[in-house]
Amino acid sequence: MVALVVRRFFQLAFLLLGISFLVFASMYIAPGDPAAIIGGPTASESDVEAIRDNLGLNDPFLVQYGRYVSNAVQGDLGYSYQTSQPVWDAILVRFPNTLKLAIASMIVAVIIGIITGLVSALRQNSLLDVSATTFALAGISIPNFWLGAVLILIFSVNLQWLPVGGMSNPWYTLDGIKELILPAITLGTASAAIIARMARSSMLEVIQADYVRTARAKGVKESSVIWIHTLKNAMIPIITVIGLNFGFLLGGTIITEKVFAINGVGRLMIDAIAARDFPMVQGSVLLVAALFVFVNLIVDIIYTYIDPRISFD
């Protein structure tokens, strides 16, 4: 287990280096001049050039990238071109909202996805199975911005049961839970559909295994056959999908945060891209990438507890 963690941290270092290079290069060649955006429409050519010199934007690409990596290794991701605020401070203020949204969405996805997939597998080719398959197809196909707008229209505007948007209350309060319900459903629907499809296929494969037939032949109760012999052995691919989707949720909240006016990292990232705020974009992407690798490390560790036969040493 220790060897796995050490290997993953080395992989994380190389991965972040590669991602930082790709993001830095993408922002470098992207159209638009951040110095002109900072200076505003009234800035003269000399003012814009002075801003470029001050930010080091006139230096060669490799010099700029080397300076960025050197500072990042020391924990300095730079300062926002828009607000002059340290990038770390801006991200840490907004990250709790993104994390709360991702966790709430994953809870919705796991509950709905596993139950739907389990029922579908146990009632194969029945009306329930067809309904679950239709739900999975619809969940993957429906765009987040459309689903979010429909939920707001129904539950916030017409019924007035839930707030339209925002996330200003602690998650453990009633108001905080109400703020999370609609965005969590919006963001978690697609993941629930993917988990449901994987749970169904994995359960169908395990149900046909010899040890399941043997357990039934010995007279083991059906509930024990399902929950102990079948579901536990079907969980490996399901957990893989859950881990991947949670990583995607951490970096894929941009549209949902926009629709529900949530001040999170996704919204910060898209605003920074529009403003050519290079340090803010790079810092946000690096954080999301690091979290994605960390989540997958946790998934690998969970594997060994579910199935002791799995070893990464």
Rank of each mutant, 00 (worst) to 15 (best):
I177Q: 14
S311T: 11
L287A: 05
V225E: 03
D300F: 10
I242H: 09
P86I: 02
F278R: 00
I91V: 12
A72G: 04
V225C: 02
A234D: 07
T186K: 10
N58L: 13
G176D: 05
Q282S: 07
A90P: 06
D129G: 07
A35Q: 04
L249D: 00
M235N: 06
P279K: 00
Q11A: 04
T253I: 04
V295S: 08
R7K: 15
T186Y: 10
S20T: 12
N58S: 08
S224L: 14
R67E: 13
N97W: 08
E179S: 08
S20N: 15
G66K: 03
L122P: 11
N125Y: 15
I228G: 08
Q11C: 02
V164S: 03
T133M: 15
T240D: 05
Q74F: 09
S26V: 14
R52V: 02
I207V: 12
S120D: 10
A132L: 10
M235K: 07
P41N: 13
H229F: 08
L297W: 11
L204K: 07
W161S: 01
L55N: 02
Y79L: 12
V220T: 13
V295P: 11
I181D: 09
I181E: 10
A36Q: 13
Y81K: 00
G66W: 07
V212E: 00
S201V: 03
P143E: 08
P279S: 00
D59G: 04
D89S: 14
T42H: 09
G166W: 00
I29M: 12
T42L: 13
K258S: 14
S156I: 05
F10A: 13
P31H: 15
A50F: 04
F260R: 01
S84A: 10
N263T: 07
D175H: 02
I181K: 06
V265A: 09
A274N: 14
G247D: 05
Q208C: 01
Q85H: 04
L62R: 05
G251P: 06
P308N: 01
A192C: 09
I107R: 11
A215W: 03
I51P: 08
R7G: 02
V293Y: 08
I255S: 11
I103D: 06
F9T: 04
I140M: 14
S223A: 12
A36I: 06
G188H: 09
L92H: 10
L287V: 14
I238K: 05
W88E: 06
I255T: 15
I239V: 15
R7A: 01
K100D: 13
A215F: 03
